[in-house]
Design a protein around this nucleic acid. Sequence first.
DNA 1: ACAAATATTTAGTTTTGTCTAAATTTATTT
DNA 2: AAATAAATTTAGACAAAACTAAATATTTGT
Lengths: 220, 220
Amino acid sequence: MTLSEEDYIKTIYHLAKGEGHSITTNAIADQMETKPSSVTDMLKKLSDKNLVNYKKYKGVSLTEKGAITALSIVRKHRLWEVFLVDKLDFAWDEVHEVAEQLEHIKSDKLIDKLDNYLGNPRVDPHGDPIPTKEGAFKKSVKKLISELPVGCQGVCVGVNDSSAAFLKFLDKNRISLGDTLTILEKEDFDGSVSIAINEKEMRISDQIASNLFLEVLENK
Amino acid sequence: MTLSEEDYIKTIYHLAKGEGHSITTNAIADQMETKPSSVTDMLKKLSDKNLVNYKKYKGVSLTEKGAITALSIVRKHRLWEVFLVDKLDFAWDEVHEVAEQLEHIKSDKLIDKLDNYLGNPRVDPHGDPIPTKEGAFKKSVKKLISELPVGCQGVCVGVNDSSAAFLKFLDKNRISLGDTLTILEKEDFDGSVSIAINEKEMRISDQIASNLFLEVLENK
DNA sequence: ACAAATATTTAGTTTTGTCTAAATTTATTT
DNA sequence: AAATAAATTTAGACAAAACTAAATATTTGT
Ligand SMILES: [Mn+2]
Ligand SMILES: [Mn+2]
Ligand SMILES: [Mn+2]
Ligand SMILES: [Mn+2]
């Protein structure tokens, strides 16, 4: 597998949110900041290698083999992120670019030993679960703030958009993973949400609410 | 710089043993297990980028810029080797292939933090010196056993040939970096050398003697 | 149902890095 | 000083991964 093939497989996996449903050519192109025609070329190649199910004009999904591959790359990406934050003292909003490179290093032995060295972590610095070597996954019950009703209380466990801009915003507003958050009110007009966090009340935009994951404790 | 360009620069650096003298096209091709014509193509490109001095048919050497680049790659390679051995518990003869990949990860911040995390080591697991960020180099006074006279005593600090085969041979014969070794006798006929190491005497072939570096303590 | 808009694929190029085969230059013999 | 051998370069081809522009398929709006 080339680096580029791996990035495509991972992107398809993420766009399908781990489920097997069909993804469009343009969605992949948008996500990877490339052209749809380039995506088509690659989908043919991945299909020849039995990594994806691809039917012209009908979208694409991962095969069993493709899903296993995706999980192994995700595993490596997230383990390296833990290494960068826990051992090298990177901030959680600085690790993505480097992990994007490190995830492509080829050595089973390396990743086994790294996993062990880090104490077999179950989640990465963004609260996302780390698949086991066998591809097993702690199915997390997390949901976006925008998807939850008023009254819900939960723990911030992850982000949807992990762009540096968004992560910086969270830092600036003293929102960290592990913080407990309560949804106080929702505004239909603009989708903004009023929340309680760290003993304070604040209002966040729909853009924020639809990019911050909560592990729900109570949901009535 | 592409991964391939980096590997060429590093190979030229190693073939010149850190000195600036001229290297032949075939020597590079042999070392990299590629064809001379491919080397010629790459030398033209590196010359266009001012990384090497190249004159048709006359060999190639690194420019100042090329040497700085080479040292930065060597630095990364050796720091990663220390990480693999010290932190992840790799054996010293298992690290090369992985370090060959890791040396190409692009992030100044990463390598600074890694250096710091490892305690700013001065040598890698093979006893080779690690250049500083500024490209400075503790010029080591090490020499091959084959180059030293009878009576010399020194510490094993490195290998010339770091092939897995050679490293395995050393392990099997209980020769490790850090061991003190004395040269007892040299046989003109076949270049074999009689040595004392770890309270034992043994005879090593010229092939071994010309691939094991000693940091000389006494040289009379 | 049909026209217009949108999504996707195809065709033809480009860049990078490799290769083989042929041509050329340099080195070594006789 | 030729003749031969070895080293090196050139020419032409190919695969991977990207692009632009054009063609085709699908979806949407009326
Ligand atoms: Mn990547
Ligand atoms: Mn992450
Ligand atoms: Mn390398
Ligand atoms: Mn080394």
